[in-house]
Amino acid sequence: MTDRRTTLKLVIAAAAAMPALRARANYRDNLEPGASEPGDVRRFEPTIHGYGPDPDLIKAYEKGAFWPLTMNAGQRQLAAALCDLIIPADEHSPSASAVGAVDFIDEWISAPYPKQREDRDTVLNGFVWLDGEARRRFEQPFAKLHEAQQRTICDRICDASRAAADLRGPAQFFAAYRNLTAAGFYTTLAGRKDLQYIGNVALTHFDGAPVELLRKLGLA
């Protein structure tokens, strides 16, 4: 049943669920957070209701079409500042917030599903820590800091594997937030252009790998 996109999606789902880890560890960590013991009876029945099992797949949805966005103004300012610290504008493409990443993240953490609710706690708790840290060190909320000041804080939490023991929580928040920012940015037209993605267009024939490139890579 598996096609490549499904597989990549599985890899991705695991990565999103465990932002500090490399992709998926194994199937069971993805599928069953609490591993079953022999004899455990589980009744498989859904209990969550979001957009339901039969949404209209053709129409394009605005962010917040299925559930209200919930970030307040202060949270959105912080969200935008952090989005653009992670994905700033450069010569190739605009910044993450300029293409709607804040709405994407707001929709994500406002969703009724378990994974998103977990991310909600991670993100909103992370915001509180980040603003607290900004005020403690620079007497300003994070969104008001200069980029150099923001970096002083974020350099310590940008890699969970190197973060100090007492910063592990914030580092996990930063990893999760970077995942969400990248998701919000690279799923847009601007993000696809930045990557020079040229697929998803109808073609009359498919040529496969260019021979010159194969030669260059030693694969011809």
Binding site: A15, A20, R22, C158, D159, R178, A182, A183, D194, N200
Partner: peptide, 26 residues
């Protein structure tokens, strides 16, 4: 291959990027 980027395409890359953010992340 270079599949259409999805919500998770660039998640969990720290082991390759060392935790980059900013222009370096792009």
């Amino acid at each position: 291959g270079r599949q259409m980027p999805s919500a998770g395409t660039f998640a969990g890359l720290e082991w390759l990027t060392g935790g980059s953010y900013g222009k370096k992340f792009k």
